[in-house]
């Protein structure tokens, strides 16, 4: 009983309830579509927040991993006839391996140099996807077969809603556990001061690499699921602005707040759908929202909100 009331279990329970009840109020497939995109972005952002919020390392290139996962699934299932699940797992493993190889040199960089390093990595991935047209279809993208496991085909918004919702719940549970583990404490030490952490014996490099790999794998899984759900992907999944979108969701929701990332993903996925109606103003408003939230709520939405509530109750 006590465990149920602990903040993280409570949060998880609340998330599960929201996911379970949401279909009752979603009027049609279009809303399911938006909800699925929210879920997919949230999966990626929860992973990215471990890196940015907890380990204090910026990445402006995670859309690259998302894109690689998407294309791994598209190519392996579409062009080579692999089973969907195998393609997803192999894609995620390959992306994890790539992240592991890149982690050492890239995570040596700090601040803006790290930003540029990860940005460069993402841009190169996106250029490769754009240019290897024989394989990927180039800028116009390629179709992806439906997701199939043991003869059962996942098709339609409602089916995907439950798949994505379930995956998000598991991802959140894993992330929360990771944070409460000794690894999480080591990460926070790195965020505080890397040198200080090193001095007290934290193997900073190993932990940074671990989180980098975890976040890349989650991005890849998100990409694979997106590819199958959407049925069509383009290299824009891997482009710079998509990376920026992920980072903005994390920071908007609140760094070092797992549920904040889910909130951030929800807001920034739903917002453009509303703005599409006044499309002349879409870009302008999106930019203004990004700027003003960062200026007025530098800690992000959820932490600022929590602080406000705490102050009220005192």
């Amino acid at each position: 009983m006590r465990a149920l009331l602990a903040p993280r279990t409570g949060g998880l329970l609340a998330l599960a309830i929201v996911i379970a009840l949401l279909p009752a109020v979603l009027p049609n497939n279009f809303y399911f579509n938006v909800a699925i995109l929210v879920g997919l972005n949230a999966i990626v952002c929860v992973g990215l927040n471990l890196l940015i919020g907890y380990a204090g390392q910026i990445s402006l290139g995670h859309a690259g991993f998302f894109g690689l996962g998407a294309y791994a699934s598209a190519l392996l299932t579409g062009s080579y006839g692999w089973p969907s699940l195998a393609a997803l797992v192999v894609g995620a493993a390959a992306v994890g391996a790539l992240a592991f190889l890149l982690a050492r040199p890239i995570l040596k960089l700090k601040g803006h140099y790290l930003a540029m390093g990860t940005l460069g990595m993402g841009v190169i991935i996106s250029i490769v996807l754009n240019q290897e047209a024989g394989l990927t279809g180039g800028p116009d993208g390629m179709p992806v077969p439906a997701f199939e496991v043991w003869g059962w085909t996942a098709y339609g918004e409602r089916t995907w809603y439950w798949i994505v919702g379930g995956t998000l719940l598991v991802t959140t549970w894993l992330a929360l556990n990771l944070i409460e583990s000794p690894i999480g404490r080591a990460l926070r030490a790195i965020h505080g001061s890397e040198i200080a952490a090193e001095v007290i014996g934290v193997k900073t490099e190993r932990f940074k690499t671990l989180v980098f790999v975890i976040s890349a794998v989650l991005a890849s899984v998100g990409g694979s699921m997106f590819a199958h759900y959407s049925g069509f992907i383009t290299p824009s999944e891997a482009e710079f602005f998509h990376s920026i979108a992920f980072v903005t969701m994390v920071v908007l929701g609140g760094m070092a707040s797992i549920f904040g990332s889910i909130l951030g993903a929800a807001i920034l996925t739903v917002l453009p759908q509303f703005l599409a109606v006044l499309h002349d103003y879409e870009t302008l408003v999106l930019g203004a929202v990004m700027m003003s939230v960062m200026i007025f709520l530098p800690k992000g939405l959820l932490p600022s909100l929590a602080e406000l509530l705490r102050r009220r109750s005192l």
């Binding site: 980072v247 903005t248 760094m255 870009t283």
Partner: peptide
């Protein structure tokens, strides 16, 4: 640093949107 990066990227999106208008 990451917040400032987002502010300036937001500014660039904002300026582009304004230019289109």
């Amino acid at each position: 640093v990451v917040s400032i990066i987002i502010i300036t990227i937001g500014a660039s999106i904002f300026l582009r949107g304004a230019a289109m208008l």
